[in-house]
Every structure is written in structure tokens, then in C-alpha cells.
Amino acid sequence: MSFFSKIFSRDNPNAGMQPLYNAIVGEGRQLAWYEEAQVPDTIDGRFDMIAAIFSLVLIRLEKDEERGQDIAWLTEIFISDMEGQLRQIGIGDMVVGKHVGRMMGALGGRVGAYRDALEKGAELKDAIVRNIFRGAKPDDAALDLLASRLAAYHAALGDCSSDAIVAGHLPASEAAA
């Protein structure tokens, strides 16, 4: 492929990551997260749950140094989707960029919090209360359930090959069972 055809190509390099993004969103929308683990079934709650699954996938893909570009493309799809979602709920052009910027900051914070909890010994329940319940602690049974399911999902991702993950073949969570 020539230099100019690469620059002016209509092919979207992100498209190869769309199946993975769809799988992440599908997992984040599993009803059990909301019904059994008491994640708030609101716009914010759905964002928080999708961001949690997205974070776990990013943490797993970061372990494969060859996946940096895939992570960038996946993140671009996330940004595009969040921008579209904001526009659908009526956020105007003048402020959509600020909202997307805040969402990306929130995602970055979540990736760090979940990485610290799942790989560096920080308390996962604290990260969950802060990032999914936004400080309003649910009952202990729901918090325990959510923490155990997210930890199990993180472990299951660790058992998957990067190729399978990038192809959108995510492990089935206990929430889906």
C-alpha cells in the first residue's frame, strides 16, 4: 500500500476492535450486575459498569506489550460511543467535549483504582464504592457479590489469550450465568 493510500484510505483501523467493544458493552449491561449486585440502573450506573469491565479488559491487554495500538483503537471507539450517547441524551455541541474529557478522566481513574486493587493489594471494595456507587455504599451482600464477581472476571481475563480478547471472545462472567 502506498503512502498516499494509507493517508487517504477510507478504511477505519478501529473497526477491528468493534467486536471487543461490543462484547465489553454487552457484559456491562448484564442484568445481574444491576439486579443482584445493586449497581444503580441509571445512565451513570451503566457508564460505571461498562467502565469497570472496560478497565479490566485494558488492564489485561496492557500485559501484552504488542497490544498498545489495539488499546488506542479500543479507546477511540469508547470515546466515539460516549460522544454519541451524550448527543442522544441532549448534550449540546458546545459542551460535549468537556463531558467526554471528564468521562475519559473518570475512566483513567478507574483503570488505576482497579489495577491497584486487583494487582497491588489495595481494597477492591473501596474502589467499587467510590467508582460504581459514587460513595453511596450498598448493602454488604451486594458489595461482596460485586467485588467477588469483578475479581473473578479479572482472573478469567488473565486466563484468556490476547488474541481471543481482541476478537471479542470475553469470558462469561458469573453475572451472565
Rank of each mutant, 00 (worst) to 15 (best):
Y34E: 10
E35H: 11
E36N: 10
A37T: 10
Q38K: 14
Q38L: 07
T42M: 05
T42W: 03
I43S: 07
R46Q: 09
F47K: 05
A52Y: 01
F54V: 04
L56H: 06
L58D: 00
E65C: 01
E66P: 00
I71W: 04
L74E: 02
T75K: 11
I77H: 05
I79F: 03
D81H: 08
G84V: 06
I89H: 00
G92I: 10
V96M: 03
G97V: 02
G97S: 04
G108W: 08
V111F: 02
A113T: 11
Y114W: 04
R115Q: 12
R115E: 12
A117R: 09
A117F: 04
A117C: 07
L118W: 04
A122V: 11
E123V: 15
D126R: 06
D126K: 12
A127S: 15
A127H: 08
I128A: 07
R130P: 00
I132K: 05
A136K: 15
A136P: 05
A136D: 14
D140H: 03
A141V: 13
A141F: 07
L143N: 08
L145D: 07
L146R: 08
R149F: 06
R149C: 08
A152F: 03
A155R: 15
A155G: 12
A156N: 14
G158F: 12
G158V: 13
G158C: 12
D159M: 13
S161V: 13
V166A: 14
L170S: 08
A172P: 02
S173M: 09
A176H: 13
A176M: 14
